[in-house]
Nucleic acid binder design. Structure first.
Lengths: 211, 211, 211, 211
DNA sequence: CATGAATGAGTTTTCATTCAT
DNA sequence: AATGAATGAAAACTCATTCAT
């Protein structure tokens, strides 16, 4: 009896072979531009400069390729260092974080991953959930931890730090992210971003700063 | 000959023939569940209870059908009456609005239109932009107008009312909408929604309430 | 929630629409000539004179099309009337049956169905088993019943009538079927077939004729 | 340059290099389990424990590899010693042969070669014919020779010994081989095989034993 | 107007084969 | 000789769209 077995990522096609990176780069672009369904493996192959067959040497199928990109994205987000040193004061920390966060989201293609995953979350719930937990929720938690430290130090007065973290992040995006992602506005200027983050910080502290 | 037969179509395709409504109802369901690409004209025909051919009698192609649904959605949002009577006090108005807004977004399938449009905004920028302007931006503006009235009355102190409107709307969704749309959480309980809206209102007024 | 449903054979695409027959005819030829794997849906479409898409309107997939052909084959075999009237004497009955059976197997393409099913029986056991039971075993049983009647009448002395039926059928094919199906001989002449069937009958009766 | 490098291949591709045997062993397994079309060169390479490239060092293409296996099979069948010593009495000889023959066919995977070749005989007639002649017909002839000797000795009375040989071989398979190969029955028990062979022998001798 | 049968271009995926090392 | 990465042609299958009735 012969059992079909399929082992992707052989010894020689290491996690980081240059072909693999080349494919991921091409695929990222196509997926982010056209969405999961809109992207065709042919288009991806062309963008990556490899043959269609080669795609399948490195990735089991279209989904696996897509998820590999999300994995990369998650790693990238995981490596972005937000300075959440508890010793720093809240205003500075929040402003810095807000700026960095907005840069992340509003960088060219920055919102694309979010949008692309969102688009298929209904049909591929696991993919959606995993992305949310590893990317968005992760950041919420990091900020939440910071806030808790300052609550402990008596600096802030917050009942639900997870909610507060969410609130701050939403505030930072206000008026910027949705128009961008709906193609109703160009990426915001540096100055506008600063204004919005400043406003968000002011509002946040007005509500949560200990008296 | 062919030309002659073209003429009378318009008579029967009145904006509101019952067949047309029937098709739109079926199509909405399918588009919202499966996304633009995931929805097939066959599935839509089945859901609408008409033949595939009939779809093309009323709509030029898949995109036109999709846009007709967004048009409906826009009309629907335009008709939702948020009570922005300037005479009402801010706290009540904001809380009421926040609740209604969250109900709109978190109702089963409520985020679907947003998600669905978002998903194709990159490939069909006009569709994305139009939807944003007619649905999301429209609501921002209505809230903004309300806020301006209260700024004028000295009740609130707001520099940028458009931004403030955006901020409030984002605050209301905090911790609720993203997990829901990414399939990482079930629809929030009524109580949780109230808590979040209350918190949003508190924060908003802490920042913008005139002293 | 939209549940994808797929109903082949709608009301209007009846079991016996002419397109369906046309497709089956083309597919039969291609399948029998090239085997299940060797036959491509494109080739079948060409042979049937329809588009590839049409194939899938009538049959869910390649397997379903193949099984529909086997179904036809089974029906055909079921309708072949072997004269197993118990009143007829054994020698005549066996000779007539043997001739008819050989004609069935050795007719152009007659062995092809058997060969084609045999070929995929390991990978599609259900298909193999079903075909065996409906076509080959069916005939064995009909012959076996006849033999039992003659055992009862004291005409024949047979211990295991099922085995005896198998034996007679195998004897009839001796030297004819295997060379044919292995492409090592042309279809046997009428005369040769008669000789072999006569020899089979003689041998069978020598063993089983009551003394 | 290219020409020069061609030359030395033959030295290492001796008919019996161990790599070659290794490949054949793996390929046999895969071909017999999955059929010619179902077997992929990748699967074969894996089963043989060599790289895909190496397959092509030893065999021109998939067909050549397949035919090499049939060649082996033919050699194997040629070496199976059926004891056709003319001195032995017919009953014992036939029973022994019948048992051995059935063991050959009903051993796990025993019918596989026959089935596999049968499957492609229409598309590759030469392969089919050659296999028939070298394996099946060969055995028929050996048995036929034995029978002729006994006809000569007056022991048996047979008109057409080739036909008689075929007949006996078919009788031995009766009720056993077809159900097995169509996946409609498990391999027969030793006892059942004996019964069938005994019955075949009895019938054969009833017809052909000289009076 | 309404139908649904028919299409064919396009999609994902597989696999025999080649070739640089 | 041996490898295994890479290819591209071809396969199964889908689906938006057309058109005769």
């Amino acid at each position: 009896m012969v059992v079909a077995s399929r082992e992707h990522l052989h010894v020689l096609q290491e996690e980081d072979s240059s072909k693999r990176r080349q494919i991921l780069a091409g695929a990222r672009k196509v997926f982010m531009d056209l969405g999961f369904d809109g992207a065709s493996m042919g288009e991806i192959a062309r963008a990556a400069g490899v043959s269609k067959g080669t795609l399948y040497v490195y990735f089991a199928d279209k989904s696996a390729l897509f998820e590999a990109i999300l994995e990369e994205e998650a790693l990238f987000h995981g490596q972005v260092v937000f300075n959440f040193d508890p010793a720093r004061d809240a205003e500075t920390t929040l402003k810095d974080f807000g700026q960095a966060y907005n840069h992340l989201l509003c960088r060219p293609g920055g919102g694309s991953a979010i949008r692309t995953v969102m688009a298929i979350a209904e049909r591929m719930p696991d993919v959606g959930r995993r992305y949310y937990l590893r990317v968005l929720d992760k950041t919420i938690n990091r900020l939440s931890e910071y806030l808790k430290a300052h609550v402990a130090s008596g600096d802030l007065e917050i009942d639900d730090c997870d909610l507060a973290a969410s609130q701050f992040m939403e505030l930072c995006k206000a008026s910027l992210f949705l128009p961008l992602i709906f193609q109703a506005a160009s990426p915001p200027s540096e100055q506008r971003m600063t204004e919005v983050v400043d406003s968000a910080t002011r509002m946040f502290l007005a509500a949560y700063k200990a008296k």
